[in-house]
Protein backbone atom coordinates (compact mmCIF):
# COMPACT_ATOMS: atom_id res chain seq x y z
CA UNK A 1 0.00 0.00 0.00
CA UNK A 2 1.36 3.33 -1.03
CA UNK A 3 -0.10 6.39 0.60
CA UNK A 4 1.31 9.69 -0.66
CA UNK A 5 -0.77 12.85 -0.14
CA UNK A 6 1.29 14.85 -2.61
CA UNK A 7 4.72 14.75 -4.15
CA UNK A 8 6.01 17.09 -6.79
CA UNK A 9 9.16 16.46 -8.77
CA UNK A 10 10.29 19.52 -10.72
CA UNK A 11 11.77 19.15 -14.19
CA UNK A 12 15.49 18.58 -14.24
CA UNK A 13 15.69 17.08 -10.77
CA UNK A 14 17.85 14.08 -9.95
CA UNK A 15 15.44 12.34 -7.65
CA UNK A 16 16.24 9.36 -5.43
CA UNK A 17 13.91 6.95 -3.71
CA UNK A 18 15.12 4.84 -0.81
CA UNK A 19 13.40 2.46 1.57
CA UNK A 20 13.44 -1.09 2.81
CA UNK A 21 11.80 -3.96 0.98
CA UNK A 22 8.06 -3.45 0.83
CA UNK A 23 8.35 0.33 1.25
CA UNK A 24 6.63 0.87 -2.11
CA UNK A 25 9.46 2.03 -4.38
CA UNK A 26 8.61 -0.19 -7.32
CA UNK A 27 4.90 0.44 -6.75
CA UNK A 28 5.56 4.17 -6.94
CA UNK A 29 7.40 3.80 -10.24
CA UNK A 30 4.76 1.48 -11.64
CA UNK A 31 2.14 4.11 -10.82
CA UNK A 32 4.14 6.82 -12.58
CA UNK A 33 4.34 4.58 -15.65
CA UNK A 34 0.62 3.73 -15.57
CA UNK A 35 1.36 0.05 -15.15
CA UNK A 36 -0.99 -0.10 -12.18
CA UNK A 37 -3.91 2.24 -11.46
CA UNK A 38 -4.05 4.31 -8.26
CA UNK A 39 -6.96 3.47 -5.95
CA UNK A 40 -7.37 7.17 -5.29
CA UNK A 41 -5.87 10.34 -6.65
CA UNK A 42 -3.90 10.76 -9.82
CA UNK A 43 -0.50 11.12 -11.37
CA UNK A 44 0.18 14.20 -13.46
CA UNK A 45 3.04 14.53 -15.88
CA UNK A 46 3.58 18.05 -17.21
CA UNK A 47 0.15 18.84 -15.74
CA UNK A 48 -1.58 16.13 -17.70
CA UNK A 49 -2.90 12.88 -16.20
CA UNK A 50 -0.86 9.79 -17.01
CA UNK A 51 -3.83 7.43 -16.98
CA UNK A 52 -5.53 6.79 -20.32
CA UNK A 53 -3.16 9.18 -22.08
CA UNK A 54 -0.26 8.59 -24.41
CA UNK A 55 1.52 11.95 -24.45
CA UNK A 56 3.83 11.24 -21.51
CA UNK A 57 5.23 8.22 -23.35
CA UNK A 58 6.86 10.54 -25.88
CA UNK A 59 9.30 11.93 -23.32
CA UNK A 60 9.39 9.26 -20.62
CA UNK A 61 11.46 6.08 -20.57
CA UNK A 62 12.03 3.49 -17.90
CA UNK A 63 13.90 0.38 -16.93
CA UNK A 64 12.37 -1.38 -13.96
CA UNK A 65 13.19 -5.04 -14.54
CA UNK A 66 13.79 -7.65 -17.22
CA UNK A 67 10.24 -7.28 -18.53
CA UNK A 68 11.54 -4.07 -20.14
CA UNK A 69 13.91 -6.12 -22.31
CA UNK A 70 13.00 -8.09 -25.39
CA UNK A 71 15.06 -11.14 -24.64
CA UNK A 72 14.81 -12.71 -28.09
CA UNK A 73 16.67 -9.82 -29.71
CA UNK A 74 20.37 -9.15 -29.80
CA UNK A 75 21.37 -5.96 -27.94
CA UNK A 76 21.86 -4.17 -31.26
CA UNK A 77 18.43 -5.21 -32.53
CA UNK A 78 16.90 -4.08 -29.24
CA UNK A 79 18.53 -0.64 -29.46
CA UNK A 80 17.54 -0.25 -33.12
CA UNK A 81 13.97 -1.24 -32.24
CA UNK A 82 13.83 1.45 -29.57
CA UNK A 83 15.43 3.89 -32.00
CA UNK A 84 12.72 3.11 -34.56
CA UNK A 85 10.05 4.08 -32.05
CA UNK A 86 11.57 7.57 -31.79
CA UNK A 87 12.38 7.98 -35.45
CA UNK A 88 16.10 7.41 -34.92
CA UNK A 89 17.74 5.69 -37.86
CA UNK A 90 20.36 3.01 -37.47
CA UNK A 91 23.35 5.37 -37.97
CA UNK A 92 22.05 7.65 -35.24
CA UNK A 93 21.60 4.78 -32.78
CA UNK A 94 25.05 3.47 -33.69
CA UNK A 95 26.67 6.82 -33.07
CA UNK A 96 24.74 7.14 -29.83
CA UNK A 97 25.94 3.74 -28.61
CA UNK A 98 29.51 4.66 -29.48
CA UNK A 99 29.73 6.99 -26.45
CA UNK A 100 28.73 4.14 -24.13
CA UNK A 101 31.48 1.76 -25.28
CA UNK A 102 33.40 2.13 -21.98
CA UNK A 103 30.20 1.41 -20.03
CA UNK A 104 29.58 -1.76 -22.01
CA UNK A 105 33.21 -2.74 -21.49
CA UNK A 106 33.28 -4.87 -24.68
CA UNK A 107 30.81 -7.29 -23.22
CA UNK A 108 27.62 -6.28 -24.95
CA UNK A 109 28.00 -5.03 -28.52
CA UNK A 110 28.99 -7.29 -31.39
CA UNK A 111 28.64 -10.45 -29.31
CA UNK A 112 26.09 -12.10 -31.64
CA UNK A 113 24.10 -13.30 -28.66
CA UNK A 114 20.45 -12.97 -27.72
CA UNK A 115 19.73 -10.81 -24.70
CA UNK A 116 18.37 -13.89 -22.88
CA UNK A 117 21.84 -15.45 -23.06
CA UNK A 118 23.59 -12.53 -21.35
CA UNK A 119 24.38 -12.49 -17.65
CA UNK A 120 22.10 -10.51 -15.31
CA UNK A 121 24.65 -7.70 -15.05
CA UNK A 122 25.03 -7.31 -18.79
CA UNK A 123 21.27 -7.48 -19.26
CA UNK A 124 21.03 -4.58 -16.84
CA UNK A 125 23.56 -2.57 -18.85
CA UNK A 126 21.49 -3.17 -21.99
CA UNK A 127 18.27 -2.09 -20.29
CA UNK A 128 19.80 1.03 -18.76
CA UNK A 129 21.29 2.29 -22.01
CA UNK A 130 18.04 1.42 -23.80
CA UNK A 131 16.32 3.88 -21.48
CA UNK A 132 18.56 6.72 -22.74
CA UNK A 133 17.64 6.33 -26.41
CA UNK A 134 15.18 8.84 -27.82
CA UNK A 135 16.27 11.92 -25.82
CA UNK A 136 13.84 11.25 -22.96
CA UNK A 137 13.10 14.13 -20.61
CA UNK A 138 12.07 11.81 -17.78
CA UNK A 139 14.03 8.65 -17.03
CA UNK A 140 12.83 6.19 -14.39
CA UNK A 141 15.26 3.53 -13.20
CA UNK A 142 14.54 0.93 -10.52
CA UNK A 143 17.65 -0.30 -8.68
CA UNK A 144 20.08 0.56 -11.46
CA UNK A 145 23.11 -0.43 -9.39
CA UNK A 146 21.96 -3.92 -8.47
CA UNK A 147 23.86 -6.66 -10.36
CA UNK A 148 26.36 -4.17 -11.85
CA UNK A 149 30.03 -4.75 -11.17
CA UNK A 150 31.88 -2.00 -9.19
CA UNK A 151 33.55 -0.48 -12.27
CA UNK A 152 30.26 -0.29 -14.11
CA UNK A 153 28.52 1.21 -11.09
CA UNK A 154 31.06 4.03 -11.03
CA UNK A 155 30.79 4.54 -14.79
CA UNK A 156 27.03 4.62 -14.51
CA UNK A 157 27.18 7.33 -11.84
CA UNK A 158 29.30 9.38 -14.20
CA UNK A 159 26.79 8.92 -17.03
CA UNK A 160 23.98 10.23 -14.81
CA UNK A 161 26.10 13.16 -13.61
CA UNK A 162 26.99 14.14 -17.15
CA UNK A 163 23.37 14.25 -18.36
CA UNK A 164 22.02 17.64 -19.41
CA UNK A 165 20.48 19.48 -16.51
CA UNK A 166 17.08 19.55 -18.24
CA UNK A 167 16.56 15.82 -17.76
CA UNK A 168 14.60 14.50 -14.84
CA UNK A 169 15.97 11.24 -13.51
CA UNK A 170 14.18 9.10 -10.92
CA UNK A 171 16.23 6.39 -9.28
CA UNK A 172 15.55 3.94 -6.51
CA UNK A 173 18.35 2.16 -4.75
CA UNK A 174 19.46 0.29 -1.66
CA UNK A 175 22.96 1.67 -2.11
CA UNK A 176 22.86 4.74 0.11
CA UNK A 177 26.30 6.08 -0.79
CA UNK A 178 25.68 5.88 -4.55
CA UNK A 179 22.28 7.48 -4.34
CA UNK A 180 23.35 10.32 -2.09
CA UNK A 181 26.24 10.93 -4.45
CA UNK A 182 24.15 11.38 -7.60
CA UNK A 183 20.75 12.60 -6.41
CA UNK A 184 19.91 16.17 -5.42
CA UNK A 185 16.84 15.13 -3.53
CA UNK A 186 16.03 11.91 -1.71
CA UNK A 187 12.67 10.70 -0.53
CA UNK A 188 12.62 7.97 2.08
CA UNK A 189 9.65 5.66 1.99
CA UNK A 190 8.60 3.43 4.85
CA UNK A 191 5.65 1.07 4.52
CA UNK A 192 4.10 3.21 1.82
CA UNK A 193 4.48 6.57 3.56
CA UNK A 194 6.95 9.36 2.98
CA UNK A 195 9.18 9.38 6.05
CA UNK A 196 11.71 11.98 4.93
CA UNK A 197 12.09 14.35 1.99
CA UNK A 198 15.68 15.53 1.95
CA UNK A 199 17.60 18.07 -0.15
CA UNK A 200 20.93 16.30 -0.35
CA UNK A 201 23.75 17.83 1.66
CA UNK A 202 27.10 16.40 2.85
CA UNK A 203 25.40 15.10 6.00
CA UNK A 204 22.63 13.21 4.15
CA UNK A 205 24.49 9.91 3.97
CA UNK A 206 25.00 9.83 7.73
CA UNK A 207 21.41 10.85 8.28
CA UNK A 208 20.15 7.97 6.12
CA UNK A 209 22.56 5.48 7.63
CA UNK A 210 21.42 6.46 11.11
CA UNK A 211 17.81 6.04 10.09
CA UNK A 212 18.29 2.58 8.61
CA UNK A 213 20.50 1.41 11.47
CA UNK A 214 17.35 1.92 13.50
Amino acid sequence: MLNIPELEIPAGQLFGLVGNNGAGKTTAFSLLLDLIPPDQGQILSKGEPVQHRENWKRYTTAFLDESFLMDFLTPEEYFYFIGDLYGWGKPQVKAFLEQYQPFFNDEVLGKRKYIRDFSKGNQKKIGLIGAFIGDPEVIILDEPFANLDPTTQIRFKRIIEELESTRTVLISSHDLSHITEICRRIVLLNKGKIEKDIQVSPSTLTELEDYFAG
Partner: peptide, 13 residues
Protein backbone atom coordinates in the same frame (compact mmCIF):
# COMPACT_ATOMS: atom_id res chain seq x y z
CA UNK B 1 3.75 -11.16 -22.01
CA UNK B 2 7.42 -11.45 -20.95
CA UNK B 3 8.11 -7.92 -22.24
CA UNK B 4 4.68 -6.36 -22.08
CA UNK B 5 5.61 -3.74 -19.47
CA UNK B 6 8.11 -2.45 -21.99
CA UNK B 7 5.56 -2.19 -24.78
CA UNK B 8 3.02 -0.61 -22.40
CA UNK B 9 5.34 2.18 -21.29
CA UNK B 10 6.98 3.00 -24.60
CA UNK B 11 5.55 4.97 -27.46
CA UNK B 12 3.81 1.94 -28.91
CA UNK B 13 0.12 2.21 -29.47
Amino acid sequence: SPHFDFLATRQVR
